[in-house]
């Protein structure tokens, strides 16, 4: 399973409501994520994390630069993106199964088992606590065999045991599963990632070592 996600000099700018100026959120991001990578992307609020996330997910195009996506990428996991909170966990599992073409019953069983929601699995998602929501979201995305999982601070409320379980899933798919976590919280990145990068001034700096990245991030 060769392949990678490559960002080459990616720029993203938005029109500013007043005036003709453009605000540059990303100013030449370069990145290469290959199978087995667990990368944490750290950034302060407003650093452009969500924009980068949408570009990585392929739901938004860069203003300039290139994105090459040879891996199948999950939708961004977090913030109830891509699910319907008026529907039950089970109905959302069936929706994801239909959408991504996985077997219906099998997918529902997998999500029920993985998310450990008990009777809440049959309740509307809007009644879930944030921890339950993130367990459901992780389960929904793990229910599809993507090559790369894109996580948007969804694991923030997952306890250590659940974090281990997520790692275990990624490890069993080590041959090809990669994960990118976008977060403002250094602790989450430390918990899940092998390498890290900092998004600052619209650019991405990669660090080989997570601790080094965190030190640099906290020094900001």
């Amino acid at each position: 399973m060769a392949g990678a996600i490559e960002l080459e000099n990616v720029w993203k700018s938005f029109e500013v409501r007043q005036g003709t100026a453009r605000r540059h959120v990303l100013r030449g991001v370069n990145a290469r994520i290959t199978p087995g990578d667990h990368v944490g992307i750290l950034g302060r609020n407003g650093a452009g994390k969500s924009t980068l996330l949408r570009i990585l997910a392929g739901v938004e195009r860069p203003t300039r630069g290139r994105v090459r996506r040879d891996l199948s990428m999950s939708w961004p996991i977090g913030g109830n993106y891509g699910i319907q909170s008026s529907l039950t966990g089970a109905a959302n599992a069936r929706f994801i199964a239909r959408l991504y073409g996985t077997p219906l019953k099998r997918t529902e069983e997998f999500v029920e088992d993985f998310a450990e929601l008990g009777p809440y699995f049959r309740e509307p998602v809007r009644t879930y606590s944030s921890g339950m929501s993130s367990r459901l979201l992780m389960a929904l995305s793990f229910a599809v065999n993507f090559d790369c999982y894109l996580v948007d601070e969804a694991l923030s409320t997952g306890d250590a045991r659940f974090a281990n379980k997520c790692r275990e899933v990624l490890d069993t798919r080590r041959a090809h599963a990669a994960m990118i976590i976008v977060s403002h919280n250094a602790l989450h990145v430390k918990k899940y990632c092998k390498t890290a990068a900092i998004l600052r001034n619209g650019m991405l700096e990669f660090y080989e070592d997570v601790d080094e990245a965190i030190a640099a991030y906290q020094g900001l």
């Binding site: 073409g101 077997p103 993985f114 793990f142 065999n145």
Partner: peptide, 19 residues
């Protein structure tokens, strides 16, 4: 259980659209 991941079934562009 965890290793037993539901697999996406291969499908053509048209059937993917209908799906």
């Amino acid at each position: 259980m965890i290793e037993d991941i539901p697999r996406r079934l291969p499908s053509s562009a048209l059937s993917a659209q209908i799906r």
